[in-house]
């Protein structure tokens, strides 16, 4: 148990983005909040040691794949495309997918 310290809800922008994507998809009716809580709980109790928003992101990926919205392959291919795009983009310029 660590001592309570003041903190920000999000430590990094991607965490806020992952959070907001989840809230937005729920508001659009793509899953119920109970389904979301179950997906998140499954990650937290999976035995994999990750930071909290790491669990959050894995839960979101798993839930939308389970809903047939996209596939794990499509997500990983797109993630790799973003990494490739970043690697060829000079620092300071916006990173874009071709």
């Amino acid at each position: 148990m660590t001592a309570p310290t003041p903190d920000q809800p999000f430590e990094q922008p991607w965490q806020a983005q992952a959070f907001a994507l989840t809230v937005h998809l729920h508001e659009q009716g793509h899953f119920t909040w109970t389904e979301w809580a179950e997906a998140l709980s499954a990650q937290i109790h999976s035995g994999t040691d990750r930071p909290y928003f790491g669990h959050w992101l894995s839960a979101l990926e798993a839930l939308i794949a389970a809903k047939g919205i996209t596939s794990a392959t499509q997500l990983s291919d797109t993630a790799q495309a973003w990494k490739d795009a970043a690697a060829r983009t000079p620092h300071g310029q916006p990173i874009t997918l071709d």
Binding site: Q17, T78, A79, K83, Q93
Partner: peptide
């Protein structure tokens, strides 16, 4: 190099946004 770096986790979030 002076090129940009994107962490795995950032790339996964970007991928979700792109696909969705």
């Amino acid at each position: 190099s002076d090129h940009s770096h994107m962490s795995d986790i950032e790339a996964r979030v970007r991928a979700l946004e792109t696909v969705l």
